[in-house]
Design a protein around this nucleic acid. Structure first.
Length: 904
RNA sequence: AGGCACGUACGUCAAUGGUAGACGGCUUCCCUUACAAGGAAGAGGUUGGGGGUUCGAGUCCCUCCGUGCCUACCA
């Protein structure tokens, strides 16, 4: 069979996904067992404008590992996929396209523009979906969803209308975050706070005193231009300095207005001057103070961040920053500018375009969150549901958020998105309804205009787990797959998304949308910096796929998923690329020696007929299967990878294959050779299955080449399907195959071989040169176990140590000119090397080991001589230490004798 | 300003309170017919500093130093 020496992932990646998809392997319907358990995951929908980044690659890998694992365990498995319409992002992308044609969305008009967005979606929106195919994601494409699908849009309207009817959604004038560039309202979550090195201006306001004496009150502000909209100055009611001024008025400079001085708890007497200018129309706190004191709202900044008429003739039409300069200049001219100091404070920026947010009073739709949050809060407090992984600190983050909710600004002044299902008659009365028909009936007129705004993109996201499964209809999918098993997502959207899905799921279906929430780390660059286009430190998963292969990238991500932040280095992928190549070459060896062998055979009958290493590898295989299952169940993917990597590389390749070679590569065909070859292939095949969820492509590629694979190996739930490794049964640990005896014997064989190799290396025996091995054991117990192990593996030991021959001798028969080493149990091995041994050097070598043993013995004995320890520590712990002390003593006395022999 | 994480080998990270490990890198030797993307053998650590709890601490507590992140209504 012709197999190249180096694994080339490209071809496997091209072929297999297509076949899996075409044959419907990903759909839950592939499972023919009507009683199968169900496993479901709903994907966090990537933006339709997006392309795959490392966060996706990580998240998708983890979800795919779980999905493939459960599928191979015979679960009816659904990984539901879809994309998000991503309101602002998508609108911006299409507007940019229009700009190239010299057009704006207003030139097209709303209807044409939205048509254009759909067109764009059809042509370019599929990119990320294609990239997911490249990743090997085993999602069910037959159930693919988009947040603007008719069904999901219906869910959105149902959601909105229901909450409106219950009084949880309302329309009102509020101070909201306004992006002057995107010309839309934003929720708090779409705003980034950023520290900003700015200035603090101390402005003096003349107070109108009863007796006409001049008095000035100084206020500090970072935004002097807003003073034009001041409608009060506030001081703390407890503040002695200002107590007498409360109730007095101020002649607001640069205007004709007189404003009151009010007392409000909010004011911190210790900060600034202890007096605060109040601008209810342009600041959140001031807005609230304004409500408390019934202050008028003077709007001096408009939606384009320009000063309004109300700002006065001198300022109207100026940009907010120009106005700031002019206000400061005028104060200076009037002698009312006390001072300006450097000051660092937080400013809000639009998450998308980085423009500084302008808080504006505006008529918007809002959603009250408190009542919706209550059930979610009860659930997490009383039952720790959903179960966060890791629980610390995410459960607390989630709980804190639910405890501190503000009303959610729902409306967005965009054209792309779910249009708010509210219609107005000519008098301005609002009719919220599931359709225009319904609204007309309610209004009793045809002359209605629909609200021009759309809903926040996250409104539909909040419904994602239920709407994708068919809600508001009570579909078969909803009953079968809801609640889902786990949500895999990043910490950044716990509040934005996780909490809202909880609220809607509980509200509308009465059950939480997912049992577990796995929060993974964020992939950052090797310096710990967030990846961003601006910094130019983006790693594109597609490049990694190209360079190292999909499987290597996936298993690297799975192995890295433990940390909080994942510092990305390509070198890590390189080592797993090497691992893939190792798998390839191990399989290559097995296939080159597969004549006469069949997968699944070789282990029938009495285990005494098998070699020691056969019993040992079977034991290791079963323990690995157990460890991997446990690790995946606990979301400890790095542990699963660790187990698999070491099982395959160390146990299977370095030892099992090497020990098998004498039998497997025997020149003459024989039933024994066939059986050995079958055992080798069987272990390989099981190992490939274990690896499959992490490395789907290479495992399928190799599995398909194994002799004897076919329908008979498929999981019973998938009988009748085209043979593929992804529908075989995931190996389950069989306790009966744990073999402690074989493990102990193999440990001895491995130790012996390693010791001899070590001697060869340290004494610089030429690699090709044959040596003699003398094994001896004075202790009868040691003698027995050594005998047993060596009876089985003598030939192998000879091969792997390049020994001429091996003899059992009495300790006294070992020639003085030998390099020696002691093994577990006190057995010893000697390599006679006449002429090569430097006695002093050899004593030093043994002395070094003796020191090591002594240090450990001392430590152990100290611990054991402490009565506190022997009394309080668990008995098995104490016994374990005693055993180790005994073993060290045996080795030590063996070394003593060797030293004596050397000095004789 | 508060809150929360993190600090372990040269680098990146693991380690239910019980012998501190892996991978990469480094040193020496080897193209031994599965694999040089490999094999064999090595070097490298008072787990950021200090204190405490415990028979026993990388792990729990306190404190200091350093680094990140989140939240926030100090103008």
């Amino acid at each position: 069979m012709e197999i190249p020496k180096t694994y080339d992932p490209k071809q496997a990646e091209r072929e297999h996904y297509q076949r899996w998809e075409a044959q419907g392997c990903f759909a839950p319907e592939a499972n023919r067992n009507p009683d199968a358990h169900v496993f479901s995951i709903v994907i966090p929908p990537p933006n339709v404008t997006g392309s795959l980044h490392m966060g996706h690659a990580l998240q998708h890998t983890l979800m795919d590992v779980m999905t493939r694992h459960k599928r191979m365990l015979g679960y009816r498995t659904l990984w539901l996929v879809g994309t998000d319409h991503a309101g602002i992002s998508t609108q911006i992308v299409v507007e940019r396209e229009l700009k190239k044609e010299g057009l704006t969305r207003h030139d097209l008009g709303r209807e044409k523009f939205v048509e254009r967005v759909w067109q764009w979606k059809a042509q370019s929106g599929g990119r990320i979906v294609e990239q997911m195919r490249r990743e090997g994601a085993s999602v069910d494409w037959s159930r693919e969803r988009f947040t603007m699908d008719e069904g999901l849009s219906r869910a959105v309207r149902e959601f909105f209308v229901t909450l409106y009817e219950e009084g949880l959604i309302y329309r009102g004038e509020r101070l909201i975050n306004w992006c002057p560039k995107d010309q839309t309202a934003l929720s708090d979550l779409e705003v980034d706070k950023e520290t900003h090195a700015g200035k603090l201006y101390y402005l003096q306001y003349p107070v109108k005193t009863a007796d006409g004496t001049e008095r000035r009150l100084t206020v500090a502000t970072t935004r002097p231009e807003t003073m034009l909209g001041d409608t009060a100055v506030a001081v703390n009611p407890e503040d002695e300095r200002y107590r007498e001024l409360v109730g007095a008025t101020i002649q607001l400079p640069l205007t004709t207005r007189e404003i009151p001085i009010v007392a409000d708890e909010f004011v911190d007497p210790a900060f600034g001057t202890g007096a605060v200018k109040v601008t209810p129309a342009h600041d959140q706190n001031d807005y609230e103070m304004g409500e408390r004191h019934n202050l008028p709202q003077v709007v001096v900044i408009d939606h384009a961040a320009r000063m309004t008429e109300a700002a006065g003739a001198d300022f109207a039409g100026l940009d907010r920053y120009e106005a700031r300069e002019r206000v400061v200049q005028r104060f200076e001219e009037l002698g009312l500018l006390e001072k300006v100091i450097d000051y660092e404070f937080a400013i809000s920026r639009c998450e998308r375009c980085r423009t500084v947010i302008e808080p504006l009073i505006s008529l918007q739709w809002f959603c009250k969150q408190g009542e919706l949050a209550r059930r979610a809060l009860d659930l997490v407090r009383e039952r720790h549901e959903p179960h966060f992984v890791p629980e610390v600190p995410w459960e607390k983050v989630y709980t804190d958020w639910l405890e501190n909710l503000h009303d959610w600004t729902l409306s967005r002044q965009l054209w792309w998105g779910h249009r708010i299902p509210a219609w107005y008659d000519e008098a301005g009365n609002a009719f919220v309804a599931r359709s225009e028909e319904e609204a007309r009936r309610a209004a009793g007129t045809d002359k209605l205009t629909q609200d021009p705004d759309v809903l926040d993109t996250w409104f539909s996201s909040a419904l994602w787990p239920i709407s994708t499964l068919g809600w508001p209809d009570n579909t078969q999918d909803l009953t079968t797959f809801y609640p889902t098993d786990v949500l895999v997502t990043g910490r950044d959207i716990i509040s934005l998304w996780v909490s809202r899905m909880m609220m809607t799921g509980l509200k509308f279906v009465g059950e939480k949308p997912f049992r577990d929430v796995m929060i993974h780390g964020i992939v950052v660059d090797k310096n710990g910096q967030k990846m961003s286009k601006m910094k130019g430190n983006i790693v594109d998963p597609m490049d990694l796929f190209e360079k190292y292969g999909v499987d290597a990238t996936r298993i690297t991500l799975a192995a890295a998923s433990a940390g909080t932040d994942i510092r990305w280095r390509d070198e890590q992928v390189e080592s797993y690329r090497n691992f893939a190549n190792k798998i390839w070459n191990a399989a290559r060896f097995c296939l080159m020696n597969s004549e006469g062998a069949t997968v699944g055979r070789g282990f029938e009958g009495d285990s005494d007929a098998w070699a020691l290493h056969d019993r040992w590898i079977l034991s290791r295989l079963n323990r690995t299967a157990r460890d991997v299952d446990a690790a995946i169940a606990n979301y400890q993917f790095h542990e699963a990878v660790y187990s698999l990597y070491h099982f395959f590389w160390d146990d299977f390749c370095d030892w099992y294959i090497e020990l098998s070679k004498t039998d497997v590569a025997a020149a003459e065909a024989s039933p024994a050779r066939d059986a050995a070859r079958s055992r080798l292939l069987t272990i390989l095949e099981q190992a490939l299955r274990l690896l499959h969820p992490f490395m789907p492509f290479i495992t399928e590629e190799l599995w398909q080449r194994l002799p004897g694979v076919g329908e008979s190996l498929m999981h019973p739930a998938y009988q009748g399907a085209e043979p593929t490794i992804m529908l075989t049964k995931y190996p389950q640990a069989n306790d009966e195959l744990y073999d402690d005896e074989a493990t102990a014997e193999m440990a001895l064989v491995i130790e012996l071989i390693s010791r001899v190799r070590s001697i060869r290396s340290e004494i610089n025996v030429k690699p090709g040169e044959r040596i003699d091995l003398l094994v001896s054991a004075s202790d009868s117990g040691a003698r027995e176990i050594v005998d047993k192990a060596f009876r089985d593996e003598r030939e192998q030991i000879t091969r792997l140590t390049r020994a001429g021959n091996i003899r059992f001798v009495e300790p006294s028969d070992i020639p003085r000119a030998s390099a020696r080493a002691v093994l577990a149990g006190g057995a010893e091995v000697a390599v006679p090397l006449e002429g090569l041994i430097d006695f002093a050097q050899e004593r030093e070598r043994l002395g070094k080991e003796q020191t090591k043993l002594q240090t450990e013995a001392e430590r152990l004995e100290k611990q054991l001589s402490n009565p506190q320890f022997t009394e309080r520590a668990p008995a098995e712990k104490v016994a374990e230490l005693r055993q180790r002390v005994a073993d060290i003593a045996q080795r030590n006395s063996a070394i003593e004798k060797m030293m004596e022999a050397l000095s004789a």
